[in-house]
Amino acid sequence: MSSEHKPVVAENISKTFGQVTALQNISFETERGEMFGVIGPDGAGKTTLFRILTTLLVQTSGSAFVDGYDVKGDFRKIRKIIGYMPGRFSLYGDLSVEENLNFFASIFKVNPKDNYYLIKDIFHQLEPFRNRKASALSGGMKQKLALSCALIHKPSVLFLDEPTTGVDPVSRREFWQMLDRLKAIGITIIVSTAYMDEALLCDRIALMKNGILLGVNSPAGMVASYNNRLLAVKGDDMHSILKVLRDIKVVKSAYSFGHEHHAAISPDFGGDAVEKISQELTARGLNDTLVKSIKPSVEDCYMELSAN
């Protein structure tokens, strides 16, 4: 491993499957110890990108390097220094928790005890089930075991493809606390997610759509570049409020955000947006609504960017 190299470098990677272009001229670099998030709708090409960077798929054109090694020519070297957790559960269901860990350690010719410190925070939760078959674990436990197995050889770069899909909020929080500790010891993490509260925890986020990289930005930078005015709207009849909001001319978009709706007001509107929307709602028979001005979240940015 060479520390002078960027952990991941992608230069104009494209990938086509027959007529379908899955990736188009993707270029980016990551820093050492960076938590690099990849977000985008289904079919954006996230998994294809992961599979190319982990040497499981060869790009049609362009080049990519992991720790300075070429994904095409040096795939054997790369495989030794990366950890990969694919989107689908990839462990051996018929093997026990402990057997899975030992199996992955033996493939990488390491002693599981040597790197145990890396995984002990998460693996100790699996200790009571060490003899249980992996297939019989709950969703959250399976993901914790998969992460442990991906880490047992102390990889330099960790690729996690939607690691928390189907995982409950409590286990997700634990999972991300674990990632934070790995980052702190210098492991670079490339992680895709459909949860925007997780994207917020990344140093930078890459937004992909239809095989194109729309941009890379920090969560703060992403939020700062949001140029609509944003309102939160609450009331008794949330369903009607949403329909009415979408009908109001100055409202560019309106979406449900948990217990409130967020309405994006186009920057061209010069007046008092809160007053305007309150009036419009009242005029359409929706009384007692609460409208207030709010700061956008990463999810608001996502909704805006993915709509364009």
């Binding site: 899909t165 459909a194 996502y302 709509a307």
Partner: peptide
């Protein structure tokens, strides 16, 4: 049963 697992924020809202 988890109809929106792994679905991006925009598609989740359409599903709802």
């Amino acid at each position: 049963d988890e109809p929106t697992g792994g679905v991006d924020p925009a598609a989740r809202r359409q599903f709802w």
